[in-house]
Design a protein around this nucleic acid. Structure first.
Lengths: 373, 373
DNA sequence: GGGTCGAACTAATACGCATTAGCACCGCAA
DNA sequence: TTGCGGTGCTAATGCGTATTAGTTCGACCC
């Protein structure tokens, strides 16, 4: 009909109320602090007009003029919603959403970031980060280079998940995988396990490196033997927890079956799986073969896992709380308050049913294997 | 460390290149189409300055000048994230997110809408709908009154799911439940079913009414007997597919057990269940009792269903595509283009394993029941 | 030698809001 | 009557960009 309808502006409200645009702005922002006074009935007139039209200040204009608009951007490398990653991100969003609501901020999903070279890029000619007052970064791995730019750029942001420094300290709200993984290893050792394996990359993303670090440290401390069963291609970067790499026997395994071979062949009695899905697959395969190994999975599924009725031993990532804390840190940063901008939240240990005392026949197996070559 | 470093602007570039801000803008936007010409070496000077400073246009100012912010609001009555509704909404969001990304729009989650009288309200004193250029409405039932306000208001919006007119045509992207349900009924009749039941409200929300309409129409056309097994309280509004109500024998059933009683008592051989969860429950109960009835469920679960290994016959709602189409329609509306703003997408029929030929003992059962009173 | 025309720009303005500076009015003291 | 401090408001300006409406300058024509 009439093309794109013009949106209601403060001018319109001003005309309706018979006042100036300035007055409307002042009323809206409740500027009681300054030297500007508005008579109660003038204020009422304005508020009535606003209520009648449902007027809301244009966030874009607001941000241009005032440099803030009470909008929090959420940026992620991976798409947030797809079930491809097993709803892994959902709890973060719930936490973010709840806290954002409670402090009266809206959430803007920065979906418009184009994919270049197979991943979304923050920086490109039309980057929209600045539409929001600040933003929360979601996703397993963030390009360190982009992170550095972001730090340099000065736009407030918080990463969900610990990040190494990138041209400056990176604000984050992460999970303390080091301690949690170590606690799980300790528990395994308590139960009698002496040869443990870590199944996964153990490096690349910080979250993986941290898990691996916890594993290695705890094994060393407890005097347990540690083996690292790594997938063929460590997903791009291969360094990870550099200091510890090499101390531990490392073996590349092509798939879960190969991993199980390695486990059984070397008399390993407990496997700490980086990815839930791998742990599940390994456990089920072992069960089919009637091999009694313990399996611990380090976190909720990020890939679809085979359905199972077993409750896995492992750790619980406080995702919702992480989301909430990220909002807290971000708003503090936006307002220039000084806060602890790097936070690690404790992961609960899930006892589960898959971490038990080693089977009595584990030792013989070990012996046999040792004598094999 | 000089606080918020002033950003480089087109002015700065202009000064560096010894041209006007307009020229910079023109060069940036490559406006070769218009009547504005820029000499190659002028263009070069500007581009060099841009490259030297790493200038990027401020997206905020850009959008202010463009008079729309490329933000799409997503509003839902029911909570979208929580798994309470079995992730029913997720696929819609996936579709929305993907399409929004591909056309360069961001998503504003309007989740902070207060709950009044047990449901979220669009219109309330502090509604933020207008933050976005337009919005997508998600949720089973939308208050017709609010819908009417929205239509009258002129703010571009699209409903996911068909909606009756409300003070004007309501733009929507829905699923063609009428045809899909009819197709399922036809198939049942083909297989030999002669007495069919519809289990569910059959009214209230349009999506229910449509399913019911398809059921009744197809039964009538095929000469099959139709029974409506309705839950005790039809969830607020009770009218629904008004024209057809009353033609069909209607019976109120308290729960699934009661429904099964009615089915068996009346020699019904196939049940079309509005809700997946009800269909599953009914089928499992019937199986326990060794009663061989066919069950069709009309759509993915919106409530948690008992886990099952049976693939149910029924229909598949193209949720992701619906989300994507909603974005398409919305952007067209925002830009004032004329489009088909009411779209019904075809539902695929899922053959499944629960719609089979009627068991031979169905007729005798019927006879027995008839003679009972 | 005035007029036309096109190429290559620029000045001015709009976008919607927040903010700064300042104006008009009123009551009261001098 | 002037002066003066409030009170209650508005005009004007700026944020950084896109766009519209010119302006300048030379070439070319009659």
């Amino acid at each position: 009909m009439s093309g794109p309808r013009r949106r209601v502006t403060q001018q319109d409200i001003a005309r309706m109320a018979g006042v100036s645009q300035t007055t409307v702005s002042v009323v809206l922002n409740g500027r009681s602090d300054s030297d500007i006074r508005i008579a109660p009935d003038t204020r009422d007139k304005v508020l009535r007009a606003i209520a009648a039209t449902g007027y809301v200040a244009d966030p874009v204009a607001r941000r241009l003029a005032a440099r803030h608009n009470r909008i929090i951007g959420v940026f992620s490398y991976e798409p947030v919603f797809p079930a491809a990653n097993g709803d892994f991100y959902q709890p973060f969003l719930v936490g973010i959403e709840q806290r954002a609501e409670s402090i009266g901020c809206d959430l803007l999903l920065l979906t418009s970031t184009p994919v270049v070279d197979g991943r979304r890029r923050i920086f490109h000619p039309d980057n929209r980060l600045r539409l929001a007052d600040g933003c929360i970064l979601l996703g397993r791995s963030l390009d360190p280079e982009e992170l550095a730019k972001l730090v340099a750029d000065g736009l407030p942001f918080v990463s969900i998940g610990r990040r190494d420094d990138a041209g400056g300290p990176v604000p984050y709200v992460g999970a303390d995988y080091v301690s949690a993984t170590a606690a799980l290893v300790d528990r395994a050792v308590e139960l009698g396990h002496r040869r443990l394996a870590y199944l996964g990359h153990g490096g690349g993303a910080e979250s993986w490196a941290d898990r691996y670090l916890g594993f290695v440290t705890a094994c060393a401390r407890a005097g347990a033997q540690a083996v690292h069963l790594a997938p063929p291609i460590p997903d791009g970067s291969s360094t990870g927890a550099a200091g510890t790499r090499g101390v531990v026997a490392r073996q590349v395994v092509g798939d879960v079956a190969a991993a199980l071979d390695a486990v059984l062949g070397q008399g390993i009695t407990a496997v700490i799986a980086e990815e839930h899905a791998d742990g599940v697959a390994l456990f089920q395969l072992a069960r089919q073969l009637r091999a009694g190994i313990s399996v611990v999975t380090l976190g909720e599924p990020t890939r679809a896992a085979q359905p199972t009725d077993v409750e896995f031993s492992g750790l619980h990532i406080p995702r919702q709380e992480m989301g909430a804390q990220a909002v807290v840190v971000l708003t503090a940063l936006i307002e220039g308050q000084s806060v602890a901008a790097q936070r690690l939240l404790t992961c609960d240990v899930v006892p589960g049913a898959t971490l038990t005392s080693p089977m009595p026949d584990a030792a013989p197996r070990d012996a046999r294997t040792s004598g094999r070559p």
